[in-house]
Simulated scan of single mutants.
Amino acid sequence: MARNAITIDNPDALTDVLRNASVAASESALRQAAIAGARVFYREIKVRAMPHYRTGVLEDSIKTVFVPEDSVTGEIATYAVTINQNAWYARLLEFGTSKMAAKPFIRPSYEAKRQEAGQVVINSIQEAVKNGGQ
């Protein structure tokens, strides 16, 4: 046997892994992985916004949206957790004003959950490779 020879005991398994890898790289699998990561941030921002709860407008204004201008078909799916215009004061809470200290809840959510969100994205892609998008 040659020194650098490779023996494949189960060629069907290798074929399945390669086929599943192409499914995992599909637009659908990328979007599912990206939205799974965004959901981690979404939940954390909702929790951290609760101390500011008075009318429910802030909590109801937190949304996860697809960002097409930052996405590349089949390569990058970008999602953002944002706050719509109904809670215009969210920016004032996050950054403060000349008369009010900042009470940030978005940036601390990102800092607290970025590792977890990254792992969720990786796990989602690995699951797609393993199951072939089933």
Results as ranks from 00 to 15, higher is better:
residue 93 L to M: 10
residue 56 G to S: 11
residue 71 S to P: 07
residue 43 R to Y: 03
residue 63 K to E: 10
residue 107 R to T: 13
residue 56 G to C: 11
residue 62 I to C: 06
residue 121 V to Y: 00
residue 35 I to H: 02
residue 59 E to G: 02
residue 57 V to R: 11
residue 98 S to F: 09
residue 24 A to W: 06
residue 54 R to T: 12
residue 114 R to C: 00
residue 75 E to T: 12
residue 43 R to I: 10
residue 114 R to A: 03
residue 92 L to V: 01
residue 82 T to G: 05
residue 42 Y to W: 10
residue 29 A to G: 06
residue 69 E to N: 13
residue 29 A to N: 07
residue 121 V to K: 00
residue 108 P to A: 09
residue 83 I to D: 03
residue 46 K to H: 03
residue 92 L to D: 10
residue 29 A to W: 02
residue 29 A to F: 07
residue 36 A to R: 09
residue 28 S to V: 15
residue 94 E to Y: 03
residue 38 A to M: 02
residue 97 T to G: 12
residue 121 V to H: 00
residue 93 L to A: 05
residue 94 E to A: 08
residue 89 Y to I: 07
residue 45 I to K: 00
residue 28 S to D: 13
residue 33 A to H: 02
residue 87 A to H: 10
residue 115 Q to S: 10
residue 30 L to C: 05
residue 35 I to V: 14
residue 69 E to P: 03
residue 123 N to A: 14
residue 79 Y to Q: 04
residue 24 A to Q: 05
residue 42 Y to T: 01
residue 120 V to S: 04
residue 46 K to Y: 01
residue 53 Y to F: 13
residue 107 R to K: 11
residue 53 Y to S: 03
residue 71 S to C: 09
residue 80 A to I: 07
residue 54 R to H: 09
residue 35 I to T: 11
residue 104 P to S: 06
residue 80 A to S: 14
residue 32 Q to W: 00
residue 68 P to N: 12
residue 29 A to R: 01
residue 72 V to R: 15
residue 116 E to L: 08
residue 94 E to I: 08
residue 108 P to Y: 06
residue 78 T to D: 13
residue 113 K to Y: 07
residue 104 P to C: 02
residue 111 E to Y: 09
residue 44 E to W: 01
residue 105 F to I: 01
residue 126 Q to N: 14
residue 48 R to E: 05
residue 55 T to H: 05
residue 102 A to Q: 01
residue 125 I to D: 02
residue 85 Q to D: 15
residue 104 P to H: 01
residue 58 L to G: 06
residue 110 Y to P: 01
residue 102 A to V: 02
residue 24 A to I: 09
residue 61 S to E: 03
residue 99 K to W: 00
residue 85 Q to Y: 10
residue 128 A to E: 10
residue 67 V to R: 11
residue 103 K to N: 06
residue 112 A to Y: 08
residue 74 G to S: 08
residue 36 A to L: 04
residue 86 N to H: 09
residue 68 P to A: 14
